[in-house]
Design a protein around this nucleic acid. Structure first.
Lengths: 220, 220
DNA sequence: CGGCGTATGTTAAAATTTTCACATGGGTGA
DNA sequence: TCACCCATGTGAAAATTTTAACATACGCCG
């Protein structure tokens, strides 16, 4: 019934909370106001015990014999995930990925506001994408400081990513979503998550070539 | 010195092999032809023992006292990951994400060839993106069958994703990279990986609000 | 050609994460 | 109010994954 609780929990729990949140939104939209961990798990291919355990790290949100009140759990998850406020984000790189992110309306819907996009390309500067202005990369430091930007999305080529990340952190950014296919080295008080598009396809290629439960036994 | 080996290994290993591959490519490009697990780990923020263990699932690729021959290990990883051939891929959805994927040249460089993009929008059909034609969604079944497409990228709204996935699988696709923010339910012999953009940002929002090593102790 | 420094491959231990199993408590209906 | 049903929350077990530690083997140098 209340928030509180445990000291440590798996890193994957946060990601799952995000899935729960989305599934609950869907249920809410369809007028369903109570759900059991079993039903929620069915929707997401996640074991019910996993869901109960994940939630238990943060509090007791359900009613025994009844399940969870969808609206209430949504409110709690919103709070836990830090989605009960607006976040200002900048995107670095107005290429295809950067543009796609600027156009991705789910971000805005969740409270992630794209304050500006930065690029070096003269032809792009001055234009805007989905309402967000494209500004010169050289102005990024001032902009981040003046607007107290905390989050950034890096969508530049691998070779430039580290320099961009360093500059962002120096300006005050403390969370980075990195699309550049490279491991960015950062101070440990800066949070950085990477989305690696190639890696995912490569993993698929692997799975198609072999199967994990089969013996790996090709000799050279 | 040879490929062979173990029966089971962590799911995360494949993803890391992909990272190793990319880092090795970079080393190779810079004319470095030998690397130790320690040095490679430093580049990637991965412990050297982790690297040795990952590689050991597939064979003995290094020389004691010496490290790994960059070119040789690249060749082996390429084989293991299934990147020693071309893959034909279709993209479903010519929106911002679909277009960004079609324009993402790293895919092509790795042997993932975007055979076609499918969409319902009359205005888009007939055009092409980065050399790949945009075709009517209704033709997808024939196209997949005729061209023996095995992999697909789903870049459609959440509401349409399940139907698209079903159609793809029915046509013969056995691996799917899903960008739609929804858990797609599939037969277990179909491989599906999801890239969840919102979830990543939400995880960042969480980490910025709290820190995992701090006690979670806010009462309602 | 033998000893030495080095970095692998591996085995065993530690840490993390998931799953199981069930006691617990809320709600409902008689 | 009481008995019964149901699904939660949790503590303990199982499974998975990472880290540590070290014996082993390779190549170099004198």
């Amino acid at each position: 019934m209340a928030r509180r609780k445990k000291y440590k929990f798996p890193k994957t729990t946060i990601e799952r909370l995000s899935y729960y949140f989305r599934a609950l939104e869907d249920l809410s939209k369809r007028g369903i106001d109570t759900v059991s961990s079993e039903a929620l798990g069915g929707k997401l291919n996640i074991k019910s015990s996993q869901i109960r355990k994940d939630l238990s790290y943060f509090g007791d949100f359900g009613k025994r014999g009844m399940g969870y009140d969808v609206k209430y759990l949504l409110k709690e998850l919103k709070y836990i995930l830090g989605l009960d406020r607006e976040w200002s984000v900048v995107i670095v790189g107005a290429g295809h990925i950067g543009a796609a992110m600027a156009n991705y309306d789910s971000f805005r819907k969740r409270g992630f506001n794209i304050a500006a996009i930065f690029d070096n390309d003269e032809k792009k500067i001055g234009k805007e994408i989905n309402g967000s202005p494209i500004l010169p990369y050289d102005n990024i430091d001032d902009f981040v400081k003046q607007n107290k930007i905390e989050m950034a999305i890096i969508a530049v080529p691998a070779a430039a990513a580290q320099a961009v990340a360093d500059k962002l952190v120096e300006s005050g950014v403390t969370a980075i979503l990195n699309f550049a296919p490279v491991a960015v080295q950062l101070d440990e008080n800066v949070r950085c998550l990477s989305v690696d598009l190639t890696t995912k396809l490569e993993a698929l290629a692997y799975y198609m070539s072999y199967s994990q439960d089969k013996l790996w036994k090709i000799y050279s």
